[in-house]
């Protein structure tokens, strides 16, 4: 699924990285614990989270992810967005709760590879 389609589906606003919104995402994960993302995630291209700090961006960078969705209208700071831009990560914000956002993505077919991931 393209990042642009994901943003539509989640009614999410892309905050940085708009120009990369053609990129395909084939799998995702959702967590507020960066420890768990680092330990259990394998090749998930996208992270949904309700945690807002610079370590969310850095963790996604370490895991070679392409996209971060902040749920529940959480607002990243300018500094976080700049960091994401440097790392080539698309950041979007959705007003949906994590549970609903994940449910929508799953229903829309974003289910590939998720059996490899424990988060």
């Amino acid at each position: 699924m393209k990042i642009s389609e994901i943003s539509k589906l989640l009614d999410a606003q892309i905050l940085t990285g708009e120009d990369a919104s053609d990129r395909e995402i084939t799998s995702a994960c959702c967590s507020d614990m960066m420890s768990d993302v680092l330990a259990y995630v394998k090749d998930q291209g996208m992270l949904l989270t309700g945690l807002v700090n610079s370590q969310v961006i850095r963790t996604a960078n370490m895991m070679d992810m392409h996209c971060i969705v902040f749920v529940r209208s959480k607002n990243p700071t300018e500094e976080m967005l700049e960091l994401a831009q440097e790392c080539g990560i698309v950041v979007m914000r959705s007003s949906l709760r994590a549970y609903v956002a994940c449910g929508k993505l799953w229903m829309a077919g974003l289910t590939q590879d998720t059996e490899d991931c424990d988060v």
Binding site: M33, M34, S35
Partner: peptide, 14 residues
């Protein structure tokens, strides 16, 4: 620390 997203005891094993 947990509210910052860390402290699950997974770092060293990782």
């Amino acid at each position: 620390i947990r509210t910052l997203g860390f402290g699950a005891g997974m770092g060293l094993p990782n």
